[in-house]
Amino acid sequence: MQLTRRDATAALAALGATGGIAYGARHFTSDDETDADDTDANTDASDDTQSSEGDDHLRSTLVAVAGVLYPNEVEGIEGFVNTFLDGRLDDSPHAEGVRSAIQTLDEHAEAWYNVKIVDMESETIDGLLREIGADTADEDPNGPTAERIRYYVVNELLLALFTSPTGGELVGIENPIGHAGGLGSYTQGPGGGQ
C-alpha cells in the first residue's frame, strides 16, 4: 500500500503539529502520489522548512528505522516520514526527546557495530532495536533507554502509521482512532455498503 502526503498530514492532524501540515508536498514526487487531491496544496511553502544538517541526519535515521518497523507492503515511507517530521520536529520538548533518542540509538549503533544507523542493513537495525530492548519495553518518555527509544522512535513511527488512513486500511479500518475521517465509515459494512 502506498503512503501519501494525505496520510502524513492526517497523522499530524491526529497528533498535533506546529505549522508543518502545509509544507509536506516537497517530500513526494508525482510517482509517490496516488491521490490527485493531495498534490496541489501549498507546495511553495517548502522553503520555510529547510531543516538543519542535524535534523537531516535525524530524518534519514528515522526513515531507515521506519523501513524496519513498517510492514513490507507499505510503500512511500521516505516521503511519509519526512512530511510527518515536518510537523513534529519543532522546538518542543517532544522534538528534543526524539532528537535525543536518535542520538542515543546512533551511539549504541556505533559502539556495537562501528556504523551509524543510516548505513546499516535493515536486519542489523532490527537486531539493534531488539538488543536495546525496544521491542519488549513499555514506552515511557522519562524512562531508561529502552523505554525512551520505544516512546520517541518505535512508537512515534508506529503511531504515525496507524493513525493514518492508509495505515488503518492495512488492517481493515479506513478511519482509525485519532483520524478525523468523518461520519461515513462507521455505518458502512466491510464492502463499503450499509
Partner: peptide, 16 residues
C-alpha cells in the same frame, strides 16, 4: 489497531 501496535513486542510483517 493503533493500541495493539503501540503495546506489542513486534513490528513489521509480524505486527501486521
Amino acid at each position: 489497531p493503533v493500541t495493539m501496535a503501540l503495546t506489542g513486542d513486534d513490528w513489521g510483517d509480524a505486527l501486521l
